[in-house]
């Protein structure tokens, strides 16, 4: 999705990957495969790191050293300490670092945030965010040591949005439950997090890797002193096509969006910022804070306690 977006923005893209660069370039129909990281970074304006989380720190370091502005897939890092190192490396090299928290660029979240920021619900008091989809198949997603599990990988989107609309967080409590893996497939995983914000607002964030074939669905509600806003992706599709029982086999998707790809919106805004444009809607600090929330949630899962965020450094 990033490659498509870069091509749509008219960028020259060099693609380096351990495994599937050639296939990606062939599928998307653009970009040039290169054989080494050095070749990819050499003279590039922007390095876009779209790799598994556990590789981010090294790659961002290399990109900064090479003098590239850096965009890095979320979560920025596996730990707050690592995220701080990445920020420091980019500062030392005099390059920018932007985390790709793409959900801030999804139009429903952007619209809700703009409304809330303009006082549309008054002071935010209680909000809920939910995200559910089929469990990812690629192995590293499922390996908590590599991806950080569902909280760090999937729920971090909504942890970031919760902080975006209700401000900094002071306390985090998390629960996670999974069902046993079967012979044919893995079990489902669901996590539930309660955030207490510095201003007193409360957030409930839940993420689920559901049974295979489950429709991807997001929901949110933000309630404040002067009103509320809510959204349910299952109820707000611009087009739904019912192909009957044969429809699925013909590739008919139940719903679709006709908005610009949020990945394109994101990379346009971040690329502009990388080349001297206005500050984007997401900063390196947002990326660090999202990792901090995920790390606090992981500590809460481990200890069964609520975690004061100032204890997560």
């Amino acid at each position: 999705m990033h490659l498509q977006a870069w091509l749509a923005l008219g960028a020259d893209v060099r693609v380096y990957s351990h495994a599937s660069a050639a296939r990606l370039v062939a599928e998307v129909g653009g970009g040039t495969v290169v054989d080494s990281l050095e070749e990819a970074l050499d003279g590039a304006t922007i390095a876009d790191v779209v790799t598994p989380t556990f590789t981010h720190a090294d790659l961002v370091g290399s990109a900064a050293e090479a003098g590239c502005q850096v965009i890095c897939e979320k979560p920025l890092a596996r730990s707050v300490a690592q995220a701080h190192q990445m920020v420091a490396a980019c500062e030392a090299a005099g390059v920018r670092l932007y985390p790709a928290h793409v959900v801030r660029f999804f139009p429903e979240y952007a619209a809700a945030h703009a409304h809330v920021a303009a006082g549309g619900v008054g002071t935010v008091a209680v909000q809920r965010f939910s995200r559910a989809g089929s469990r990812p198949e690629r192995d590293w997603f499922a390996d908590r040591a590599l991806s950080g599990g569902i909280v760090a990988d999937q729920m971090i989107h909504d942890l970031d949005i919760a902080r975006w609309t209700a401000g900094d967080v002071t306390r985090v409590f998390a629960r996670e439950v999974s069902t046993p893996d079967g012979e044919a497939r893995r079990g489902v995983v669901s996590a539930q997090v309660v955030l207490t914000h510095a201003g007193g607002a409360l957030s409930y964030v839940t993420g689920t890797w559901a049974a295979p074939g489950s429709e991807f669905r997001t929901k949110f509600e933000i309630a404040g002193t002067d009103g509320l806003v809510h959204h349910d992706s299952a109820r707000h599709a611009a087009l739904r096509i019912d192909g009957g029982s044969a429809g699925a086999s013909r590739g008919l998707l139940p719903g679709g969006s006709f908005m610009e790809s949020p990945y394109l919106t994101q990379l346009r805004e971040l690329a502009l910022a990388c080349t001297g444009g206005p500050e984007p809607r997401v900063t390196a600090r947002d990326g660090v804070e999202a990792v901090r929330l995920a790390e606090a949630a992981a500590m809460s899962l481990e200890t069964g306690r609520a975690i004061d965020l100032e204890d997560v450094r």
């Binding site: 209680v126 629960r175 207490t196 201003g199 409360l202 309630a223 404040g224 002193t225």
Partner: peptide, 9 residues
């Protein structure tokens, strides 16, 4: 049981 409450509303 874990709970948080507020009085913003």
């Amino acid at each position: 049981v874990y709970a948080q409450a507020n009085r913003l509303l």
